[in-house]
Amino acid sequence: MSAAAQFSAILRKDLTRELRTREVLVSVFLFVMLSLVIFHYAFASEGNDLTFFTGGMLWVTFLFGALLGLNRSFAQEKDEGCLDGLLLCPVDRVTIFLAKTAANLLLLLAIQVVAVPVFTLFFVERSYLGDLPLLVLVVLLADLGICALGTLLATISMNSRARDLLLPVLFLPLIVPLLIAATSATTAVFAGDTGLGDLTVRLVFLAAFDAVFLVAAYGTYDFAIGE
């Protein structure tokens, strides 16, 4: 019973469930689309150049969208009492963390694959095809941090009295640094300001953020999922 087999069993179970109910995918996708429409009416009037705001708009949307999904990721385990079933299994708790993080990451990516092109169509004037790998890198690094930290905190808030209220209160202030870096890096790509210096610093920062919180989660997850 290797950790890899258990990892894929949990991931497979979560994805099967999500693909059957489409609870998270549909509602988060609609939320993301509606946010973009609202941004248009909030910021874009005739001839306004939104380029400087694009990174912020994109990440605020994804952050809150991810929050919706994170809240659900343990809801099923908790509501149906399945968490006990999972904890009864001879599985390293960190494997549960990694599988849940991966499931959240895949869902977020699935939404972004559609949402980023739509966002580009709506708000980005420059064609950034040449810098697409850079954008993909920024998105992947930022998503990993969002999902790792979010999964850890969702585990904690799952056992509280009002989990959907608690998660944003804990999660948002902690994710601020990642949001700042992802925002400015994304804006730089959209604006064509991809001189390597600043962007590299941000990419390294995002990678470091991911690493720090993966390690922190590794050290504390046993306690977070606890008894």
Binding site: R17, R20, C82, G85
Partner: peptide, 10 residues
């Protein structure tokens, strides 16, 4: 246990 520990959507 009391609860079946099964995932209802599977």
């Amino acid at each position: 246990s009391h609860s079946p520990l099964l995932y209802p959507d599977l």
